[in-house]
Structure formats: C-alpha cells, structure tokens
Amino acid sequence: MTCTQKPAAPTRRDILKSGAAMATLQLAPGVTLMAFGGSEAQAAADAGKRWGLLIDAGKCAEGCSACVTACADENGWKGKGDAERDAQWIRKVTLKNKATGRTSELPVMCQHCESPPCVDVCPTGASFKRKDGIVLVDKHICIGCRYCMMACPFKARSFVHEPVTNQKTHAPRGVGTVEGCTLCVHRIDAGRIPACVEACAATGNGAMVFGDLRDPESEISRRLAEYPSLTLRPDLDLNQGVRYAEI
C-alpha cells in the first residue's frame, strides 16, 4: 500500500511556533524562562511543587468574608440567592467548642488532598490532581454524576444547577457539571497568589498564607515548621494541601 500525503494534524510544535503573540514559556518541560517577581510561582504546573494554604483561624476576623467575596468575584460563581443550590467554592464556618464555648471562624474550601477521595471515586477521571497538587475538575469529561460530592469529606464541591452565562474567561463553569475551588490555578500559572489570600491580606488580617509546601524556605513551610497546625479530618489521612492553625 502506498502512502499519500496526510494532512498533518497540528503538532504541539506547530502550535507553539504559530502566532506572533505567542510567548515561548518553556524550553523543555520543567525549564522555565520567565520568572515572576514577588512570588514563588512560575508558569505551568511543576511536579516539584506542592501548593498549599495555611489558614490561621486566630487571625480570621469575625464577620469578615473578604475571601469569599473575592473568590466569587474572581471566579464568577455568585449565585441567584438560592442558598441550597448556589455554588459555594469557599465558605466561612463558625465553630463553637462544645466543651469550652470558645468560638472561632475560618474559611473552608477544597483542601487539595494528596489522596483526594473525589479523584478516587470519579468514574470518568474528570476529577484529577495536577502535578503540583491542585485538585481540579475536567469539565469536558464530567458527566455530572455527583459521586465526588458524595465522597468529599469537606463539602468542597458544588453542582451547577442552572444554565449560566457571563463566565470568566479563566474560570469556565457550566450547567450539569461539578466545580470547586481551583486554588486560583489561572493566577498561580501567571505567578500570582489566589484571590482569597490576596483579599485576606488586603484586610490587614493576614490569616491566609499561600505557598509551596515542598520548599522548606517558603513562608508557609517556615510557619508550619514553627507553629502547631492541623488538617481537617486527620483521621482520614488525606494529607491536604490546606492546613489550619489556632482553631
């Protein structure tokens, strides 16, 4: 059999070389040319990193929901006022110690587990963990079965109950699929910090620290080494990327 010329499917090379506006970010996987000032982040997911959050409940102000508002604005999930069905990527939880009566507040969002139950149970593999530890939903193959919502111990995921419009370009979301905190992955890839952390810092409370858990020199690692902290549901041994202190 003779071979005729096949119309070449575009290779990654073609796509990379096409387009004047295209900036070459990588020479080879893992080798980054660009550096981002003021942050430990770099472009593209890096298997050498593990992004995490440290939330200091002692600094989380009562009644403040700057992180929640910032997340809703950044990712465009503001609901229609139906609290039971509106998406909730991040929420403020008020805790009262049953024994002592002491109250505290803290934000809860996707905990970006190292062994995420949502990824284990997802039948199609739509729930996945990026190599830098961020747990995401591939909405292109999510069939909307909601088994991940059954499996998540933190109620971190929401189901989109209605057709939506006016999504953010960087945060696509659509009816019939499941979604949750992305750790502002689009910002991280651009060398910025998550919107909630930025907003928390802007209030002056500074209750949230973002950084690379694998880098012993990062602020988050230094604080974790210095002060006591915990993960939610430690009995499940999921090794979350989100840690809490001073609950």
Partner: peptide, 28 residues
C-alpha cells in the same frame, strides 16, 4: 477551518493539565 477543533482540544489539555497558559489556540 480544518483544524481549529484539534488545536483547541490540544491546547485545552496543555492548559488544564499542565498549566501552560501561553498556548495559541485558547478558546478565550
């Protein structure tokens, strides 16, 4: 016209799984 869908699918996976945001064929 012939290849936009393949280009977008290819680059969507680069963006979503590998975090490469500088791709050319992004639907955004």
């Amino acid at each position: 016209r012939r290849w936009h869908m393949s280009m977008m699918k290819h680059d969507r996976d680069l963006t979503m799984y590998d975090g490469e945001r500088g791709v050319n064929a992004s639907i955004g």
